[in-house]
Amino acid sequence: MTVLIVGATSAIAHQTARLFAAEGAALALAARNPDKLAAAAADLRARGAEAVHELAYDALDDDAHQRVVTEATALLGGIDAALVAHGVLPPAETVHTDADAALQSFTVNATSVIAVMTHLANTMEQQGHGTLAVISSVAGDRGRPSNYVYGAAKAAVTAFASGLRARLHGTGVEVVTIKPGPVDTPMIVGVHEPGLLAADPEGVGARIHRAMRRGEGVVYTPGYWRPVMAAVRSIPDRLFKRLDW
């Protein structure tokens, strides 16, 4: 099995990659920071990956999207599965008032994702098989005052993946949309304040692996986010606009 992971230094993507490595898959990892990429690759080699290739990928570079797919296809001899996992959570205070910062984060979280998924879809459709997974977010289900720029980009990814899944139906290519809730990955840990309701990245990574293995459609993880977000979407706007969250 051959797997391309774009944004391979993300904590969640790395947990998923470990499970593919343990199965002996050949991996191509793409990320921006070469040192972190090397650390992630070494871990996957030790865990039994048949091969691990490191590819430089900068989501803000327009040429990178086609290149990463072409390079991975050549190195792996085809791409059986791909996980598009890169993204940034921009600081609200900046992106709410700074249009350039808002658009730049949108490029990383949405435009580049659409580009790389389009190239992957072409490759997989030509192969006649493939699993194309993307990490969207529950934040894309409704724009909240605290993270609507991020949410808007994820909404674009969710809608894009939904349409792509339908277009590729019957071609042998499955499109998997992953919508994680908050995941426990921050660097500074609170000491006295009570814990935030954050999922552990290992469990989320394992859920993604299972969804890719089965070719599931839309996956909320942890699963309770599906009914929670259904409820959130149903809140009328005249009420929703008063919520500060």
Binding site: D184, L196, A199, V204, A206, R207, P222
Partner: peptide
């Protein structure tokens, strides 16, 4: 594996 919320570590 089930996905669970990670409890805040107490650092004891």
């Amino acid at each position: 594996m089930s996905v669970t919320a990670r409890s805040q570590r107490e650092h004891l």
